[in-house]
Design a protein around this nucleic acid. Structure first.
Lengths: 269, 269
DNA sequence: GCTATGTTTACTCAGTTAATCACAAAAGTG
DNA sequence: CACTTTTGTGATTAACTGAGTAAACATAGC
């Protein structure tokens, strides 16, 4: 007995990976049987029999199914390990070609003389925010202050990166809960850990009540990034700013020097 | 001065990676400038100004673009390294989730009592064929016979795999040209190399003249795979069969024992 | 309040994909 | 062999998605 939800997840994942609905359904169907004919596949997948042929042909061209050209033809899904490897390989190639194509392109200068002092940028998506945080930390020379609001923030690569920071870079890691703090102490021994009342961000600075703080990062007191995570959807959204004189950074420095780091949030406006 | 072709390649790659035309164009445009407004972007990319906003919003949600919520808004592409890392990460996640979803699914038995003796399957796409060849070689215990028709076949992972074969598995590698043979001798010292007149496949067994042999693989004399590469498109297509009694395998064994391996093709039908 | 600019929304048109149907070829049956 | 069923291809329609355009709305500076 297989949950129907699992099917649908597989199908929609395949669609995200570039397959059409019929193609995805056929591949999932074939993955569940040793091999099959158009008729059998159509019954299992509810794809019209006459369209199975097209779908399978495309799947074959993409290297995901094998065809036995007999009468009737037999179809068979490539073993799962090979299929994922094939998909991965195709993707890698595309990303690499994209990278070199974009690198080769000439730059265009944009009339860009505005005051950068108040620039605050926003960025979405946990992956992207993670990468940005990583890039910011990589530039640290003096100090890294990181407040972790959600367990999901503390990924293995991040731990790895923090532990391998230059030894005369201060590392201060705040957490919102005991459980996370224990993890920090265990896995990032070099960090100065502290417990922070993250609620201050909730109640005073953040507009919505229902947004939880994901992470807060301040690097060399000149670059900062704050993210919130929507508890409903799990979407993460961040704002960040750089530059010693940037307004947001100045505020952040004030906050930190006034005690957030010392577990004593916001005694003063 | 940038070649226009490079642009278009970048755009279509991004489309293959799941972006719409406008999104792709906007991202490429932003990648060429430090930052820009909707107006500027529209001019560079030829995307209608009124649609730039939607496109950028989606790009932001995907973690590829940063937005400065001022008036006018400023857009900026995430640095290339971060962007590719984000794309890669998203893809990895999908493939992994797909893998576990497909594994969890229950099997369906198919009425499958046909004689497998004459089964010949076909498979397309260099990636998929490469993976299949790898899987076949991984199962080898006695002997691996590999004929390499095109330089592209001899990839690093393949060389690696061949070199790390169990030492009492025979490895016989044939090539169609001196240059490839030299590579084989240099990079796969453990192989018994030979030069094969691959033309026999062309002229006698293959229907079209314009298909070049890509690779020919025979593992333990019980599994074989032959591929051809369309010189026009570069598409690779393979047929393969398994089982000691399989008709195709029997023919292959005959061919090999009759001298193909000894550089002496087809003296006898 | 007016104009220029920025931003969002609504709508049309074209191309793509899902879904159905009609038909020819092949295979099985009595 | 005549007849039915199965298999495969092609054509057709309906539904949808996305590109392209125009208009409405909002905002800032004058």
């Amino acid at each position: 007995m297989t949950s129907d939800a699992t099917h649908e997840e597989a199908v929609s994942l395949l669609e995200e990976l570039g397959l059409k609905e019929y193609e995805a359904k056929c591949f999932v169907g074939l993955s569940r049987m040793d091999s099959g004919t158009a008729k059998g596949l159509s019954e299992v997948t509810e794809v019209p029999r006459t369209r199975v042929y097209d779908a399978v042909r495309i799947l074959e061209a993409k290297g995901l199914v094998e065809v036995q050209h007999s009468s009737p033809q037999q179809f068979r899904a490539v073993p799962l390990s090979e299929a994922t490897e094939t998909l991965r390989g195709q993707y890698e190639q595309r990303v690499e070609r994209l990278q070199s194509a974009l690198q080769e392109m000439g730059r265009i200068e944009s009339d860009n003389d505005e005051a950068k002092l108040q620039e605050v940028w926003s960025l979405s998506g946990s992956d992207a925010i993670e990468n940005r945080a990583e890039a910011l930390i990589a530039d640290a020379t003096e100090e890294v202050v990181l407040v972790i609001g959600s367990n999901a923030v503390l990924t293995d690569p991040l731990i790895e990166q923090l532990n391998s920071l230059d030894s005369n870079t201060d590392l201060i890691v705040g957490t919102g809960s005991d459980s996370i703090q224990n993890r920090v102490k265990r896995e990032i021994p070099r960090a100065t850990a502290f417990l922070s009342e993250l609620d201050w961000l909730h109640s005073e600075l953040m507009p919505e009540e229902d947004a939880a703080v994901g992470r807060l990062l301040l690097v060399d007191r000149s670059a900062m990034l704050v993210s919130s995570i929507d508890p409903q959807t799990g979407d993460e959204q961040a704002i960040f700013a750089t530059g010693l004189k940037n307004g947001l950074i100045v505020i952040a420095r004030r906050l930190i020097s006034q005690g957030v780091v010392d577990m004593d949030p916001l005694e003063q406006d």
